[in-house]
Design a protein around this nucleic acid. Structure first.
Lengths: 185, 185
DNA sequence: AGGTACTTTCAGAACATAATGAACATTTGG
DNA sequence: CCAAATGTTCATTATGTTCTGAAAGTACCT
């Protein structure tokens, strides 16, 4: 498969960013290529276009599958498997958030929880536990919030985001309402 | 400096997670140790407690500084530098978000923007550009929203988060209000 | 069954990143 | 100025990660 310069540039960029996003170079390239190509691609096409080994493609596919980022397709009269991105850009963003949460936050949260089972033994430990509690509460609040937001429909989420810092005004408004209800001035 | 088992466990855990969070093992350990210790620590104390070389500590300090995650302190009659976490847990979370945005998203956004300068040359390129546009818009919306949220005070942000999916109801409410204003049923 | 078209696996090579420690730089007190 | 205490740098070594390619596996034909 032939790529134009701009497509090439995008694919290579995703390769370079790959490791920052939680996977590796070739997986970044593979996913980028699938994203911008209108037709699903076979493992061989990926291998040839990106100049990476067939085996590497196979492992990459496995990994992308585990992130639920791609879907497998078949063409009639062709035994090859063809791959394409799974779902919309929104879904893709959701999946990446979720996977990263699982890898980057959940293990820490569970470690922190275990920590609060015992009483601190001395001042040093008391202080440490206090800090850990703060971190735990913050992480828990953020992850719960994030997962609630993820349950909203893309449209609502989009409205909310475009509203931007405007949410702040709505919160003020709500506060006024509820204090009036309680008869405060 | 002596660590209790639980503190040890937390420090080691942060080391293991370090690379997933965007820095390396020793930096994760160093920061964890500073977080849970009541007193600021010197470079030598870090080196000895974590069993890592003095030079490594120096580089780690440099990196943590570039993330603005630590502050340097001095004690009277002592020329050593002592280090402690900079700011509250909230500030720390903000800094990490921001740094990661700079590293993980901004470069991609600017690449994507460059891409829209030229007209697509063929169908393949038209399709690709369309997908890139979607990605661009999504990333831009998310980063703008995130940076607006960061400008809110921790209290407001905390209220908002605890409200959780409840924001959705507030949005509905607002929609009803504005459609009534326009005289719709 | 045997052949073909494809996919997966995995040991080892290639590459990338992090850590060490000795050499160098800087600051301060005398 | 020197010497002692501290901080920084960087070539080398150690560790970790990714990629390749050949071998093994699978599924479908005739």
């Amino acid at each position: 498969m032939e790529l134009t310069d701009k497509m090439q540039a995008f694919v290579m960029h995703c390769g370079e960013m790959g490791s920052r996003w939680g996977f590796n170079r070739t997986i970044g390239q593979m996913y980028a290529l699938l994203l911008i190509s209108e037709e699903p691609l076979s493992a061989n096409e990926l291998s040839q276009t990106l100049h990476i080994s067939r085996g590497n493609v196979s492992m990459g596919i496995k990994e992308l599958n585990s992130w639920q980022l791609i879907a497998t397709r078949h063409k009639p009269g062709d035994r090859k498997e063809y791959y394409q991105p799974a779902g919309s850009i929104w879904q893709m963003a959701n999946r990446v958030f979720e996977q990263r949460r699982k890898r980057e936050i959940d293990p820490t949260l569970s470690l922190l929880r275990d920590n609060f089972l015992d009483e601190p033994r001395d001042q040093q430990e008391r202080y440490a536990q206090q800090r850990l509690l703060e971190i735990h509460d913050l992480l828990e609040m953020i992850t719960e919030w994030a997962s609630e937001l993820q349950r909203l429909s893309p449209e609502k989420l989009s409205t909310l985001m475009k509203l931007g810092a405007g949410v702040s005004k709505i919160l003020d408004f709500r506060d006024k309402l509820s204090s009036k209800e309680r008869g405060e001035s």
